[in-house]
Nucleic acid binder design. Structure first.
Lengths: 207, 207
DNA sequence: TGCAAAGTGTATATTAGCGTATGTTTTATG
DNA sequence: CATAAAACATACGCTAATATACACTTTGCA
């Protein structure tokens, strides 16, 4: 299965995996080329073909490649596979959340924490605007990017250009964002329907 | 052991050893040629074959050479008793870490550096994946093989099939591998519980 | 709608480096 | 001087990477 892979092939697999998570697709021959510092598309095309022969990739009916889900044998449990997730800095006003200027770093996260087919990002909790139960200043929030939520989900929203974590509740066309613990400081926020959810909090990482 | 070796053969061993430490591989026939001031690749090829016959080198399954014995510099107690510790090369994919093909050499280490009852191995620091405080390219890491660690230990992990040195931290069912200094390049790596470490860094040998 | 520009995968031929092999010349030694 | 070992020049086949080109699809714009 994954026995005799060259360094280049390994690097290619990493690039492909990151591409999948961050862009939702397999890189083109030329993108892979630049990623691997090749100077001819031929080189990366051959590499892809080799990976196909080694059963790491598979061609789908439409000709595009697909990465084969390989199971890691138990005795290799120590071998973590990761994917790079962008860490967004302070969410600046009005700026699209994924603007380049916002990306502070890329953090490697185990692929076991990532659902296939979704985009993710990380956010550093700061201030008390997300002073939810369990979230402390400096924590990293792993957010799955999506625009809808179920009642009860813990979501990330942009309220007055501030990243805010609240529990999502929708009823009668109104959206109510509840703080986990209601006290004087944290009151529910009531909004109409046309505000956008940035994503769902999937994990809180305490550093 | 170095009994009936010609001057050229001795010089060749030195060159090979330096190459191994600095580049992580045995020199090619032509590299060895220029190192020895030969003018034909044949000369160094024959020399290699002779060294193999004299049991200084050994051919591995994959055809590449391996240096059989390898003394750590004198200051590690030439008089003291030594133990042979395997020096692992690039950690090949999916392959058990101690597979034959992975062992680059056997290095003699003073028993004073070794705790009884543990397995050890050596690893060459390369690239920046282990650019931890105090670890420089080319250093040898003495790793005590074990699967558990305490928070704060400096451990060796296999992340994406690359040997990585980080500080171990476990909290909330997540494992966080922290770099010593965090900047854009060195970010924590976030894993879930079911990954295993390879060992604990016990010593850094600067050559 | 039509058409050019850009991006896609693929193909051909070339180059460079590798280990190895052939035969010749040089060197050292009895 | 004779002979064997050492070093030589050169060449072969193999692999990886190279530059360049071709035909096809997608995209944006007039």
């Amino acid at each position: 299965m994954f026995y005799d892979l060259s360094d280049k092939e390994l690097k290619a697999i990493k690039i492909i995996r990151n591409f999948l998570v961050n862009q939702g697709r397999i890189p083109s021959v030329r993108e892979l080329m630049t990623g691997l510092d090749y100077k001819s598309p031929r080189s990366s095309a051959i590499l892809l073909k080799n990976l196909e022969e080694k059963k790491i990739l598979r061609k789908k009916n439409d000709g595009s490649y697909q990465i084969v889900d390989f199971e890691i044998p138990e005795d290799f449990g120590s071998r973590a596979q990761t994917v790079k997730i962008p860490l967004l800095g302070s969410v600046a006003c009005g700026m699209p959340i994924f603007a380049d200027e916002n990306i502070e770093a890329e953090v490697s996260i185990s692929i076991e924490m990532i659902k296939n087919g979704y985009k993710y990002f990380l956010l550093r909790a700061e201030g008390d605007s997300m002073d939810e139960a369990g979230i402390e200043n400096g924590d990293l929030l792993l957010v799955r990017q999506q625009q809808n939520a179920e009642n009860g989900d813990r979501i990330l929203a942009l309220i007055d250009d501030e990243a805010t974590v609240k529990e999502y509740n929708k009823s009668n066309g109104m959206v109510i964002l509840k703080p986990k613990s209601s006290n004087k400081i944290h009151q529910p926020i009531i909004l109409n329907e046309n505000f956008r959810i940035q994503g769902i909090i999937e994990n809180i990482i305490k550093l």
